[in-house]
């Protein structure tokens, strides 16, 4: 276990679970859930300051200090490469020359499916600009490879639609992506429950990013803990290597000899 290293952009992390910080009841619940998840990287969104409204109000950063967590600013809500690039440049300034970012350029408001053309454009600019880009994308192996070639430090295909909780709809595509890429592959979006996370890690994903599955559970803090365990179980299971499936051919686990005499 000790030699199972998870690295993103040259930095080593103990947890393969990255969590979002949206959709919680309040900052205290956000903090409690993040801590229970064991996540070291947390995503944040970049939004306009509410001018004149409660200047003294607490902020997310008070509850999850950037000194204790690696912030992963995202471009959620951006529909063009230009907006995503501007947002992340602001994030870099906001977080003191912070380079690790999550790029997502959305295609439409109904599906929140990525706009892959704009994503590729933004990725090229951001990588050249010195960002370490973790990129949300569709589960297309060809596009995933292009994003790696552009220089993204992690590729993050969706398992199903953002916030849908539908789980892993196409494990075959994920496998193709995992097999072809040398940078970390993380499932981002669509996870609904702990078993989904385990399946993702069992498939060989290097990690997983989720928000709604925890925040919208009946007990978010407890689900956060479940996700931590699920990710660890999935990773261990992947490393252990599962037994081959033997369809229609049972194989008893107990000795076949030495049974007492069969009754007549």
């Amino acid at each position: 276990m000790s030699d199972d290293i998870f690295q993103i952009a040259g930095k080593t992390y103990n947890s393969r679970l990255i969590v979002g910080t949206g959709k919680y009841q309040d900052f205290a619940q956000t903090r409690d859930a993040v801590k229970a998840s064991g996540a070291e990287i947390v995503t944040v969104a970049i939004r306009r300051v509410n001018i004149g409204q409660n200047a003294g109000e607490a902020s997310l950063l008070d509850y999850l200090p950037p000194s204790e967590f690696t912030y992963l600013p995202n471009t959620a809500g951006c529909y063009t490469a230009e907006d995503a690039i501007r947002t992340l440049r602001l994030a870099r300034e906001l977080l003191d020359d912070h380079r690790l970012v999550k790029l997502e350029v959305l295609g439409d408001q109904h599906t929140l499916f990525p706009n892959v053309r704009e994503t590729l454009k933004a990725a090229e600019v951001l990588v050249k600009d010195g960002f370490d880009v973790m990129v949300y994308t569709s589960d297309d192996p060809i596009i995933a490879k292009e994003l790696q070639e552009i220089g993204c430090c992690a590729v993050m295909p969706l398992a199903s639609l953002i916030g849908s909780g539908m789980g892993i709809l196409n494990p075959w595509n994920l496998r193709l992506i995992i097999e072809q890429l040398s940078v970390p592959v993380l499932v981002d979006a669509g996870v609904g429950t702990a078993s989904d996370a385990t399946i993702a890690l069992e498939l060989g994903c290097d990690g997983i990013l989720m928000n709604t599955a925890i925040a919208h559970a009946k007990d978010p803090v407890r689900m956060a803990r479940a996700m931590k365990l699920a990710v660890e179980a999935g990773r261990e299971s992947f490393l252990a290597g599962r037994m081959p499936k033997k369809l229609y051919s049972a194989d008893p686990s107990s000795p076949v000899s030495g049974l007492i005499a069969a009754s007549k």
């Binding site: 910080t21 969104a45 939004r47 300051v49 001018i51 994030a91 906001l94 916030g163």
Partner: peptide
């Protein structure tokens, strides 16, 4: 001018 902060997000 655009002025931004970090907020909760996924």
């Amino acid at each position: 001018l655009e002025m931004v902060v970090a907020v909760g997000g996924g």
